[in-house]
């Protein structure tokens, strides 16, 4: 990833991550807007809020330099890894949306792990690792939902 190589400062990295979270929020907001089912609209709007929460946290870190680190192991069911990627569309089913979301969260996880690797100091490494864990948790939530409903009999 070339962008990563262009970072000149910690702020650059944080700005990049903040932008990334905003894009994630936009993504879920779009899914919410496109859906004609009320319940789906609400669910996606919630996801968008969570991503905005991440963004707010990053902004706070950038402004104050403070953060909390929690070490956690998050289960990776890898359900999304094997699935054929869906495309966004207005007629999208919740199953398709979940596949998309699992893949997106996995990509975000990988991105933060990568950022954590290249981060110039331990503080920043930990911040990104933490964010990676957050994304992994998101993904697990989607995976469990997928596991319970789509793989009802499997």
């Amino acid at each position: 990833m070339n962008i990563i190589m262009d970072f000149k400062s910690i702020d650059d990295i944080l700005d990049f991550a903040i932008k990334n979270e905003q894009q994630a929020a936009d993504f879920y907001n779009k899914l919410s807007g496109d859906s004609s089912v009320k319940e789906m609209k609400n669910t996606f709007a919630e996801y968008a809020k969570e991503e905005e929460g991440h963004k707010a946290r990053l902004i706070k870190i950038k402004d104050t330099g403070e953060y909390n680190v929690k070490e956690e192991e998050v289960l990776d069911l890898k359900i999304g890894d094997y699935l054929v990627s869906a495309k966004t569309s207005e007629q999208m089913t919740y199953q398709e949306a979940l596949i998309l979301a699992m893949k997106r969260e996995k990509a975000a996880y990988k991105l933060y792990m990568r950022l954590s690797e290249i981060a110039p100091n331990n503080n920043l490494k930990n911040i990104f690792k933490n964010l990676a864990i957050e994304e992994a948790k998101h993904k697990l939530k989607f995976e469990i939902e997928y596991d319970d409903i789509i793989y009802h009999e499997n």
Binding site: V37, K38, E39, T93, Y94, I149, I150, Y151, H152, N154
Partner: peptide, 27 residues
């Protein structure tokens, strides 16, 4: 493939006022 089934969409699609869950079940 016997991994499960989803609600039949024919009726929900024919009634726009009908409230359904995100999985397509009728509420």
């Amino acid at each position: 493939v016997a991994v499960g089934v989803s609600p039949n969409p024919l009726i929900p699609r024919s009634l726009s006022d009908l409230e359904v869950s995100k999985w397509g079940t009728i509420i």
